[in-house]
Computed example of a mutant assay.
Amino acid sequence: MAKMLYAATMSLDGFIAGHGGDMSWLKPYFGPNPDMDDLVHRIGALLVGRRTFEGDDPNKGTENEGAFGGAWDGPTFVLTHQVPAEPVPSVVFMDDLERAVAAAKEAAGDKYVNILGANTARACLDAGLPDEVLVCVAPVLLGDGTRLFERPGGDNVRLERTSLTHGPLATNIWTRVLP
Results as ranks from 00 to 15, higher is better:
111 K>H: 06
88 V>N: 04
54 E>L: 15
155 D>A: 10
26 L>R: 00
125 L>F: 15
78 V>N: 03
166 H>C: 07
136 C>M: 13
33 N>G: 05
54 E>V: 12
29 Y>H: 01
45 A>L: 09
51 R>N: 14
124 C>D: 03
14 G>K: 06
12 L>F: 09
121 A>P: 00
85 A>L: 10
133 V>T: 05
26 L>W: 00
126 D>R: 11
136 C>G: 14
136 C>Q: 15
80 T>L: 01
165 T>W: 08
40 V>M: 11
9 T>S: 05
13 D>E: 12
168 P>S: 15
76 T>I: 12
70 G>R: 02
98 E>G: 06
74 G>Y: 01
92 V>T: 15
16 I>K: 07
6 Y>C: 06
15 F>G: 02
52 T>L: 05
46 L>M: 12
81 H>E: 07
135 V>T: 13
131 D>N: 12
159 L>R: 01
127 A>F: 14
125 L>A: 13
109 G>H: 03
153 G>T: 07
4 M>W: 10
45 A>V: 07
110 D>M: 09
66 G>E: 10
155 D>N: 07
75 P>N: 14
25 W>S: 02
44 G>Q: 04
13 D>T: 09
142 L>H: 04
3 K>V: 03
93 F>H: 09
22 D>M: 11
68 F>N: 00
21 G>E: 08
47 L>I: 06
15 F>A: 05
169 L>A: 12
82 Q>E: 12
148 L>H: 12
59 N>G: 01
156 N>I: 09
7 A>V: 05
12 L>H: 06
35 D>I: 09
166 H>S: 12
